[in-house]
Design a protein around this nucleic acid. Structure first.
Lengths: 254, 254
DNA sequence: GCTTGAGATTGACGTAACGTCAAGGTATAT
DNA sequence: ATATACCTTGACGTTACGTCAATCTCAAGC
């Protein structure tokens, strides 16, 4: 069997550059060079390459490998037994390493959950307060104390899962809004999808959804600099205004 | 406590050159430079160095380590998961390699003949090959070569962003499945959410989605020990079966 | 005060094992 | 005849430092 560089490299799973490099260093010379200057490898080279890769896997330097393979008393069977032993050992090492990574990962995840929970609690309280400050009076007047109490209850009961889900929605909204910013068209597909996501996201926080309230919140986004800053800095300049316009269109047409 | 390069290098067991190099790349800047131009390290730097060496031990690149240390809560889990994946891949490859050594040894001893392809069976580690090995045969039989080819094409073109997104989905799936395991109910909210996430995840790998194919893959999860082991070890005992059942319900009812 | 040896500094080049262009020649199918 | 895939030889880039060289600083001993 005869192979060119590409053929052998495909066979062995190494790059053509690697084979040229091995030729250059004398580690693996081709069987011959044809009239066009192409490297041609034969079966003996294939076998030698296999040996090289075994040793390479063990972490030996190419220099060392060459010395081993070119030693006059090199014994293939002995070498292979040796490979087997060392590879098994290496696998045990790798297992230990993986276990360590897993442990670290578990610890970090634990940390993150605690962190998120804490963040979440703080975030919840903040939002309840903000909600109360923004809408409390108005809603109280319109729908009575009971509605406000219910809303706040819902808030407090909001589970971690809900929070996670709403976070994911927020991320999706952010992505969509970024896309929408490229065209800047509030009636476009991306912007309308963003508005829809925003409605879904809202449903995690409001007891009942109404188009008017949604539109009202949209207006707030440009009227209140805290919101504008939040969206513009996280998503891009003009994001708050774009979202507002998208919501206005969304609530009117859907 | 304050240290010069040599003192810190002795303390931490790294060379002074390493510390200078870390300074140069910004990975570990000294606390201050004294009037003679000496680098002076403080306690915070000692702690950071410890972190660096820990992650270095795990095999992460200095670039990655810097990213982790400079953006703690965001990057670390993803980076470690990523690394874990790589290490696991490496482990699987090692297993195959050991098998190849055994085979080669048997061939040499028994004068059996191995063809050139067999000689390198354990060495290749491309994702596509692996994907092909895992899903190829089954899917090929059921849905034809074209589907597999297209899927491989999709893989090749899959961008880093997609990869990241699919990793996140995988993580979310894992979380949801763990939650579902607590009740064990495949029709429950968590399990159904897991099935949905699994569908989303799949969409990153399959060109076209069909309920039948999805259900088929679900069945594979319990029929094939490779999958069962994977899910059960990573998520919990019975995870594979639960996911299968959830998928079956999901594909029938949605 | 002077010497001496350890330790500090900034370059700058070296190393391993390739990866990645660039510029050009070759084989082959249409 | 041309497109495409594959071949060639440079030559520079990469990672994580090692290894000089030339020079400066510090603490100790005489």
């Amino acid at each position: 069997m005869q192979y060119t560089v590409k053929q052998l490299s495909d066979l062995a799973g190494v790059s053509a550059r690697t084979l040229r490099f091995y030729d250059q260093t004398g580690l693996l010379k081709p069987e011959k060079i044809n009239t066009s200057g192409y490297r041609i490898y034969g079966t003996r080279q294939v076998d030698r390459l296999q040996q090289i890769l075994f040793y390479r896997e063990l972490g030996l330097s190419l220099k060392t490998i060459q010395a081993i393979l070119d030693a006059p008393d090199f014994n293939v069977i002995h070498a292979l037994s040796d490979h087997h032993k060392k590879l098994s050992e290496k696998r045990r090492q790798l297992d230990r390493l993986i276990a360590t990574v897993e442990k670290t990962l578990a610890a970090k995840k634990g940390e993150k959950i605690m962190n998120d929970t804490e963040k979440f609690e703080g975030f919840k309280q903040e939002l309840i307060d903000k909600n109360e400050a923004l809408y409390g009076k108005e809603i109280r007047e319109k729908y009575g104390d009971e509605a406000v109490r219910q809303s706040n209850e819902k808030w407090k009961k909001m589970s971690q899962a809900d929070y996670d889900a709403s976070s994911r929605l927020e991320e999706a909204l952010s992505t969509e809004l970024k896309r929408a910013l490229k065209t800047g068209d509030p009636a476009g597909q991306a912007a309308q999808k963003a508005a829809e996501l925003h409605r879904q996201w809202l449903s995690y926080f409001w007891v009942s959804y109404s188009k008017e309230a949604h539109a009202g919140l949209g207006n707030l986004y440009t009227a209140d600099t805290r919101f504008t800053d939040y969206y513009d800095s996280r998503i891009g300049k003009g994001a708050a205004k774009l979202l507002r316009d998208a919501i206005l269109i969304y609530t009117k047409t859907k």
